[in-house]
Write a protein that binds this DNA or RNA. Structure first.
Lengths: 237, 237
DNA sequence: TAGTGGTCTAGACCACGGT
DNA sequence: CCGTGGTCTAGACCACTAG
């Protein structure tokens, strides 16, 4: 089962982008250039680029070229409105718990049941509080298997982003997500952290992110105060 | 600005599917067949089919052909868990308000501000209550411009589905959606309908569906009791 | 005007599914 | 075995962007 030519080219270009060989805004080699570099035809080159396009690594511009763009972080994901708009402006993220190794919590305490394979390693846990304009709006609890990821315990996150860190330092991409939404009454802990009264309605998003690394899923609870900042999501065909 | 050949073929096939010329499970003409029917090459035929694939009208099977499949109803949309699994089993849908023509409500009462053009016609409104196993779980309020859609006031919905009705009777497809989530305390009306205590946390999903008909968007509020049935959403790369 | 991506032709060979 | 979709070649012309 030979790998197809276009997926070889696709992998080459993708890993270059991930390694930072191109900055955001840079242009990839033109289609014609790819053709003669790799001795392929434009059909094949375009197919490879199409894959990158679908994955959100590039953006094509007629007459100009294929531009590397900011990797979309949320794949059909829900994001706090204002987090995207006000990016880098009024957003604060603070660690309530820096990444630590712990035994896995009971399955009932997790957003989704982990797979057996994941339970063989210990669990890495971290917790963050995200705020807009000084007001806390989201508490985020993350669980995942420590296998091969213990380096995460030391360093800082790339640009403050967990997903960017996975991509740039470990070459792991998010490949999908499964979510579950519930409206809950705030318990004591969440009400204190999100500064709402106990019993106030909050939104809990349970997420299971699947990744390109087999045996690695990220399990997260997101507790959101949606009073001022609702959670938003766009979908275009 | 001539239309591309592949998008012509794409339109032809799409309208045939929508008109019901093929049943779900039927196969479209093979790629080679399309080639000689329309005097095109396989590149062009495949491009047309690729569009149908992206839109979810067909499913390709290596060695067999392109099969017409059940049109996916929710585009990146959130659906009640159990609505998909238990489809046709324990689901009940009842009209609280059959489609009627009304003046547009105040903008503040709508999920998203309508466009000016839409306000020129009256508004069609309908409201449904959806339940699982006899328990109400979701109240759904829908608003949209009546322009060209007054026939909706008479007939039944195709298979009980509003979107299927739009597609089969009006050839209108949903092309995207914008959503906003909030956790709210149930007001009197919703608490009675969803059979929860007043003040209980409920999830409100505000949606704006864009469609293939210019000047038509569907605005909806979904009030969900997530106690037993959370709202779920999968996303695969 | 030169270079880019978008569309399209006219073939070819392969892998898969069913007879 | 034959017909299907998946991949790929080697070209061509067009529309868009920018110097």
């Amino acid at each position: 089962m030979a790998e197809t030519r276009y997926s070889q080219i696709h992998k080459i270009l993708k890993s270059r982008i991930q390694r930072g060989a191109y900055d955001v805004g840079d242009f990839l080699p033109s289609e014609h250039e790819l053709c003669h570099t790799y001795s392929i035809t434009r059909t094949t080159a375009r197919k490879a680029l199409d894959e990158l396009l679908k994955e959100g690594f590039i953006e094509k511009q007629h007459g100009k070229g294929s531009m590397v763009k900011e990797r979309r972080q949320s794949l059909g994901l829900l994001t706090v409105k204002g987090f995207s708009e006000a990016v880098g402006e009024n957003i604060q993220t603070t660690f309530l718990q820096k990444p630590i190794i712990t035994p896995w919590p009971a399955v009932a305490e997790l957003p989704f049941p982990p797979e057996e394979r994941e339970l063989k390693s210990d669990c890495i846990y971290f917790e963050r509080l995200r705020g807009v304009s000084g007001e806390p709006v989201m508490r985020e609890c993350n669980y995942f298997s420590a296998e091969g990821l213990t380096k995460l315990l030391d360093g800082e996150f790339v640009e403050g982003s967990f997903f960017k860190t996975l991509s740039k330092n470990f070459f792991i991409e998010i490949t999908g997500s499964e979510q579950e939404l519930r409206a809950l009454k705030a318990d004591k802990q969440s009400s204190e952290l999100l500064k709402v009264s106990e019993g106030a309605p909050i939104l809990r998003i349970s997420v299971k992110f699947s990744t390109s690394k087999t045996g690695l899923n990220i399990y997260s609870y997101l507790y959101c105060n949606t009073e001022k900042y609702p959670i938003g999501n766009d979908y275009k065909h």
